[in-house]
Design a protein around this nucleic acid. Structure first.
Length: 358
DNA sequence: TCTGGGGTCCTAGGACCC
DNA sequence: TCTGGGGTCCTAGGACCC
């Protein structure tokens, strides 16, 4: 019997801030971009539960979150703390959480900074596996003063959806027999891989829940979803046999930057490009790679029109100068007046390298 | 409302090869 | 009239995830 757990930290970044800054406890907290008095250009990374009561949520533009917080404050509700946060610190906490999970299971997949799958098949029974989950939650609370929600199910898909079912500080157990009925009433958006676009296009067909989606045959799903269709047919019935991925290597390394103000200042843009190439190259080395072969440059204009240009070298390069040179060559056409006759201002540039070699 | 930054995977057309 | 077919690589774009 396969038993898979999925651990998901509750409002992770905000919870770490709350823990480390006692003066913020119980207050609404938003971790993310600088709100710049409502003029900031980033998004919300994490909002804690009090901030969510104001309608603030992850991926919301920070300017909008700022306005929501203002509205609440004027109504006499507690003021919201906006914090930039520290990815470095979150990574350190994450490592310790992963170590706790590894103390209880040998096969662990660190799926993101605040999520992990772990294989509890060895426990032999659902009851014993559930005990281990409770134990993991308890130790995280004792050692890190943080809460996590865990889903326990017959595979990664069910575990993942179950961990989100009762948040925060929840434990949701779904048996193999219950899996299909557990999924059926849920919105299609709960299925990993179905995002906002697909949700919308399905809604136009009157498909809102997993139950609705089950009306499609594998062939119909293949037509709508391509290669993924037949796989999706299985998943919405609770069937999913993917193994845990315990080792991972990046396939690409890149950086991008949204400017504080849209610009066509060539001096500024070139300087940023150079700095980014430098950082990317440093990270390629730090990750243990020696060479790259493909360079990708991304440009986003003020109107959010986003384009990329890439070039693959005939042979791998280990040269940082070559990276700058190739990135510059790829960027040039975007700055050329003949290519950009409307003088569209530039909002973001990015550099990425692929086909990494050791 | 006005949209970050780090990634992965898929699609589709054209080039090229056998 | 008049156009194979399969595989792989490159390029650009897009959906998705956290």
């Amino acid at each position: 019997m396969r038993l898979i757990g999925h651990l998901d930290m509750d409002a992770f970044f905000a919870a770490v801030e709350e823990r480390d800054h006692p003066e913020l406890r119980g207050q609404p907290i938003v971790v993310g971009a600088d709100p710049a008095g409502g003029q900031g250009r980033g998004v919300v990374a994490t909002a804690n539960y009090p901030a969510r009561k104001y309608g603030i949520h992850s991926a919301m533009p920070i300017s909008q979150a700022w306005k929501a917080a203002e509205v609440a404050r004027r109504r006499g509700r507690p003021a919201t703390a906006f914090v930039r946060g520290s990815h470095r610190r979150y990574s350190e906490v994450s490592e310790r959480i992963m170590a706790i999970v590894r103390r209880h299971a040998q096969v662990v997949e660190a799926a993101s900074i605040d999520e992990a799958y772990f294989d509890l098949s060895f426990a032999g029974s659902l009851a014993r596996a559930a005990d281990i989950c409770r134990q993991i939650k308890l130790i995280i609370k004792e050692e890190e003063q943080l809460t996590a929600s865990i889903g326990l199910g017959p595979n990664k898909l069910i575990a993942k959806i179950a961990s989100d079912f009762q948040k925060p500080d929840g434990l949701t157990v779904v048996t193999a027999e219950e899996a299909e009925n557990f999924l059926a009433p849920l919105p299609v958006r709960k299925i990993p891989g179905i995002g906002p676009k697909t949700e919308k296009s399905l809604a136009r067909l009157g498909i809102k829940t997993v139950r609705d989606l089950k009306r499609f045959s594998p062939e119909q799903l293949q037509e709508r979803f391509g290669k993924w269709g037949p796989e999706l047919y299985e998943r919405i019935r609770g069937r999913h046999e993917s193994p845990l991925v315990t080792e991972w290597e990046p396939k690409s390394i890149g950086e991008q930057e949204t400017f504080g103000t849209d610009t066509l200042d060539l001096n500024f843009i070139f300087t940023r490009l150079w700095v980014m190439c430098h950082e990317v190259f440093k990270r390629v080395k730090a990750e243990g790679f020696l060479t790259y072969r493909t360079v990708v440059v991304t440009v986003r204009c003020a109107d959010f029109d986003t384009k990329s240009r890439s070039h693959t070298l005939p042979t791998p390069s280990d040269s940082p100068r070559r990276l700058r040179f190739e990135a510059m060559k790829l960027l040039m056409p975007f700055l050329d007046q003949r290519e950009n006759p409307k003088h569209k201002l530039i909002r973001l540039i990015g550099v990425r390298v692929e086909k990494l070699g050791k």
